[in-house]
Amino acid sequence: MNSFLKAENLKFSYINNIEEPPVRTEVLKGVSLDIKKGEFVALLGHNGSGKSTLAKCFNAINIADEGKVYSCGFDASLEENLLPIRQRVGMVFQNPDNQIVATIVEEDVAFALENMGVEPSEIRRRVDEALKTVGMYEYKDHAPHKLSGGQKQRVAIAGILAMKPQVVLLDEPTAMLDPSGRAEVLKTIKMLKEEMGVTIVLITHYMEEAAQADRIVVIDSGNVVMDDVPKKVFAQVERMKELGLDVPQVTELVHHLRQQGVDLPCDIITEDECVKALYELLK
């Protein structure tokens, strides 16, 4: 069992019951995707492309209309698998304010464990551990509303980590943060992957963040349109722009230079690679 999150020809529609007759909008139109244990996948797509909807299918918030979804080996369409899946597949959302339930940091981190009926002494141990992992242990007695955006988001991640999930889905966790908050959160995400072997699915609009993933999946109007390593995905600069996305600045520069006939490799996506290549060229 190597595949951890698996979608087979997944279709999903939202139904708007306010309109008469109800309006059906098909958001996912047959998505097949296979994410392996320990992978760090960035999920890209413009607003309304269906990427959040897809993420919510993996933790059984959305149930597929057609096709199959397996999360950590559990069939997401079965009612009895709901809680086992949600314990294993944690989800962090965009707005840090709207996902914190409790008025004290440590009690918020404990929330999921309390719901799962974990022994109090074990809750204590896991809450402390999770808070230490995200570097928020000193803040355990603080009120969440007094923290910065990046800190709140780390508390939210700790609340998920305490469940000891195998997968963490993050739906634009950095969209409402300032650059330093974004850096804090991204550092935490990478540590989860590297040190704890957690499988990561990161939805983001920041291409520099996506460039750090192992793999990029691009969703456009309900279909997977690109699925490859970042170097290969970002090399298609024109295609990415057509999809309403972007590429890192260094990739764009190299792309323009190549169009002018400059001899540069097409797969430059990080600052280091760009500095090296340009240095070779200009020294």
Binding site: Q249, V250, L253, Q260, V275, L278, K283
Partner: peptide
């Protein structure tokens, strides 16, 4: 700082005579 600015800062620190401040991709090109 924009990624592109950092790249050219580093290049000039490595001894490439960049000459000017770079802050947009088009200018960098």
């Amino acid at each position: 700082v924009p990624q592109i600015t950092r790249v050219f800062k580093r290049l000039s620190a490595m001894g490439v005579n960049v000459g000017e401040e770079v802050y947009t991709v088009y200018f960098a090109k």
